[in-house]
């Protein structure tokens, strides 16, 4: 079976989620659990690194939609980065760049949290 893993690191108050593998209707609950825990821990500034993610379906996109409003209401955000063209095409095709900040490199996403407008 194809797998999905999340590796978590921190940079100051910012949590960085490194997604690996296949994010679909079967595996998306694991990402939901991670976001629920981050909210419990009051970690509202989150960078999601897609470098090692091979696949995403609408179930995966739905997880980001489910948490973005709450993170922003708590003065945080979910910033996305390091997507392959294949993954970016899925986000872009449905218009996600209208709502989400998507960066080429992780350091740019982290810097944006540290230097808000």
């Amino acid at each position: 079976m194809e797998d999905f893993n999340i590796k978590e690191t921190s940079n100051g108050q910012i949590k960085i989620l490194h997604l690996e593998g296949f994010l679909d209707a079967h595996t998306s609950s694991s990402l939901e659990s991670t976001f629920n825990r981050l909210i419990d821990e009051k970690s509202f500034k989150v960078v999601v690194n897609f470098d090692k993610l091979s696949y995403i379906s609408s179930a995966g996109l739905g997880v980001f939609m489910a948490y973005i409003e709450q993170m922003r209401n708590e003065q945080g955000d979910i910033k996305l980065c390091e997507m392959s063209d294949k993954i970016y095409n899925v986000f872009d095709m449905l218009g996600f760049p209208l709502l989400f900040e998507i960066y080429k490199e992780e350091k740019n996403a982290v810097e944006k949290f540290n230097t808000p407008d």
Binding site: S57, G62, M65, F96
Partner: peptide
């Protein structure tokens, strides 16, 4: 309408639009 969708922070319902686009 994806502009309205994002404005209202909707969740779900994107599978069929994806099939139709692809």
């Amino acid at each position: 309408d994806m502009v309205e969708y994002f404005k209202n922070y909707k969740v779900g319902g994107l599978g069929i639009p994806m099939m139709k686009k692809f």
